Amino acid sequence: MQDEVRVAVLPAGEERLDRALARAWPDLSRSRLQKLIKDGHVRLDGSVVGDSSLRPAEGAEATLVEPAPEPAAPAAQAIPLAVVYEDEEVIVIDKPAGLVVHPGAGHGSGTLVNALLAHCGASLSGIGGVARPGIVHRLDKDTSGLLVVAKTDRAHRSLAAQFADHGRTGALERAYLAFAWGVPEPRRGTVDVPLARSPSHREKIAVTSSERGRHAITHYAVEEVFGDGAGEALASLVRCRLETGRTHQIRVHLAHLRHPVVGDALYGAGFRTKVSRLGEEAASRVAELGRQALHAALLQFEHPASGEILRFESGLPPDLAALHAALRAGLE
């Protein structure tokens, strides 16, 4: 949210500044205006004033820069967490699909942060700010898998540096498993195309050639191919390793290859007609997903305090495991 700027020309009279402003902006209480004046948010004819009792001259122009409201501190909520590892510095969570990482528009509660506040109490790094304590990286709401959270400021700084480096010189490694439509060719390769917010769809990220694009690299390898029993490849299991960490990166890069993630309504809507060709069981599993078939399966990083290399792997969650089994059955 941005600061709001208000301007009013004050009428003649002997009123105090706070009273005159209350008449100009009746939606603001005098007590609120007095605090805004005291905090230096009000100017008269361009000069900051700090005295509510000041009596402005006739025709003086008052300008108020009302600061955007600060986000409320999230409340602790007893939401079950799958804790993979925890010590005094970090906590590693296996996040289920459907869980938002931190509060934001439309998600004021019921997030991972709310759950962490209940689980960890006050022992979360404050570097991320009020709404994102300890959060170093994120997973999309409907992406499941491994995520590390900083419990100390030292851990936050170390992990942030590792994620910024993306494993180029350090130990950080992240890999995802994605069920994709069709089979990418070649079956092992690298997608190196910049990404930016779509100018036509505010929720989407798009491949771009403009200067506003951010560098994005995804390495992929096809691990398994699923057919229809007649030899036609309909879907594949693809392992993706991130060299950068942009919003929706894997989803956009696979869609760019024309092999979007199964179940991805945002980037793979044009592939919905292919569901019926998977066979009854697999089609049923896709319909039940209600999300993109994407899972953060591997997370490796250097421990912020000990320097030990910590490596965690997460198997497919039940919904994706059921899809996997159904796709394999279609080969028999």
Rank of each mutant, 00 (worst) to 15 (best):
V65W: 04
V65H: 09
E66C: 14
P67W: 08
P67A: 12
P69I: 10
E70Q: 13
A72D: 11
A73G: 11
A73R: 15
P74H: 11
A78Q: 14
A78D: 15
I79S: 09
P80G: 14
V83A: 07
V83G: 08
Y85D: 01
D87M: 08
V90S: 01
I91G: 01
V92C: 02
V92D: 01
I93D: 00
I93K: 01
D94I: 01
P96K: 10
P96V: 12
A97N: 02
A97D: 04
G98L: 05
G98R: 03
V100S: 01
V100E: 03
V101L: 05
H102C: 12
P103N: 11
P103W: 06
P103G: 13
P103R: 07
G104R: 04
G104C: 06
A105Q: 09
G106C: 10
G106V: 06
H107A: 13
H107R: 05
G108K: 08
S109I: 12
T111A: 10
L112D: 01
L112T: 07
L112M: 08
L112H: 09
L112G: 03
V113I: 12
N114K: 12
L116P: 04
A118L: 07
A122N: 13
A122D: 15
L124G: 02
L124M: 06
S125H: 07
S125Q: 06
S125G: 11
S125E: 06
G128W: 07
V130R: 13
A131P: 01
R132F: 04
R132V: 04
P133N: 13
P133K: 06
G134R: 08
G134L: 05
G134P: 06
V136E: 05
V136Q: 03
R138Q: 03
L139S: 01
D140R: 00
D140K: 01
K141V: 08
D142P: 05
S144C: 09
G145L: 06
G145K: 00
L146M: 08
L146I: 03
L147Y: 00
V149F: 03
A150F: 06
A150C: 10
A150Q: 05
K151L: 03
K151A: 06
T152V: 10
T152E: 01
T152Q: 03
R154G: 14
A155M: 04
A155E: 02
S158Y: 08
L159D: 04
A160D: 15
A161M: 10
Q162N: 10
A164D: 11
D165P: 09
H166A: 15
G167Y: 12
R168I: 12
R168Y: 13
T169A: 14
L172S: 04
A175M: 09
Y176F: 08
L177W: 11
L177M: 12
F179N: 00
A180N: 02
A180G: 06
W181P: 03
W181S: 02
V183M: 08
V183Q: 09
P184N: 10
E185A: 14
E185L: 12
E185D: 10
P186C: 08
